[in-house]
């Protein structure tokens, strides 16, 4: 069968993606430097703790006594994160490319089938044109994470001037907790995303650099 090059990602999408990647890493790292001054979060229920992000964790990753540094980086790169993210969302809206990402009817069931297929439980992922249902949930969900991390961030940043926003997230400590775990979900997204790209192979990775993918023409 003859092969052809087909445009997969527009130039704008590729810039948004590759600007966001290092900026998000700086946001996560500087956020951890801030968190390192108040090491209170853990995964657990009641007395039972699966994993604690405690002093030992902070020391392993050199997060302690770097609060001023962390805040300085965080509130500088927050501008890039928000402006790039806002430009991305506006681009999706005006180019109508949001249709490629939004989960459609029956997407929940489809995503579950893709998930089972990915884990090798069953081989019955539905055929999809463009992104499959699981990808649609992941890529729409990560936009939602970006919005939530921005508004919870503002709720923590200005809890008096924007006290109504802080109240929406259940108060100051609650907003901090949500902000921290949104970061956890971002990290989870990045890990799964990178593993899936590795699994999909060179054609998928090349497409986010060149914009083109090689397809077989029927």
């Amino acid at each position: 069968m003859p092969k052809a090059l087909r445009t997969k990602h527009s130039l704008a999408i590729r810039w948004f993606h590759w600007i966001n990647f290092p900026v998000l890493l700086v946001m996560i790292w500087s956020g951890l430097l801030i968190y390192g001054a108040n090491r209170v979060y853990r995964i657990g229920v009641g007395d039972w703790t699966l994993y604690a992000f405690d002093t030992a964790f902070a020391e392993r990753f050199n997060l302690r006594f770097r609060l001023a540094e962390g805040m300085a980086w965080h509130f500088t790169f927050a501008w890039l994160f928000v402006l790039n993210g806002a430009a991305y969302v506006l681009y999706l809206v005006f180019s109508k490319q949001w249709r490629h990402l939004a989960p459609g009817r029956g997407a929940l069931k489809g995503a579950w089938r893709v998930f089972l297929d990915d884990l090798r439980f069953r081989r019955n992922a539905p055929e999809a044109e463009g992104y499959n249902s699981a990808q649609r949930f992941a890529y729409s969900g990560v936009i939602l994470l970006g919005v939530l991390s921005t508004v919870t961030g503002l709720a923590i940043y200005k809890p008096v001037q924007l006290s109504w926003l802080t109240a929406v997230f259940g108060g100051y400590q609650s907003a901090r907790w949500i902000h921290f775990w949104i970061t956890g979900l971002f990290v989870l997204f990045i890990v799964v995303h990178v593993l899936q790209v590795i699994r999909a192979g060179w054609n998928a990775f090349r497409a986010i650099i060149t914009g083109k993918e090689v397809v077989e023409e029927s």
């Binding site: 003859p2 092969k3 052809a4 090059l5 590759w18 090349r206 650099i209 060149t210 914009g211 083109k212 090689v214």
Partner: peptide, 19 residues
């Protein structure tokens, strides 16, 4: 298809250079 392979390489080279 040598022409196609060359086209892929040309497009890739340019983009990876920018990258």
């Amino acid at each position: 298809d040598p022409d196609f392979e060359q086209e892929v390489r040309r497009v890739s080279r340019r983009s990876f250079l920018w990258g």
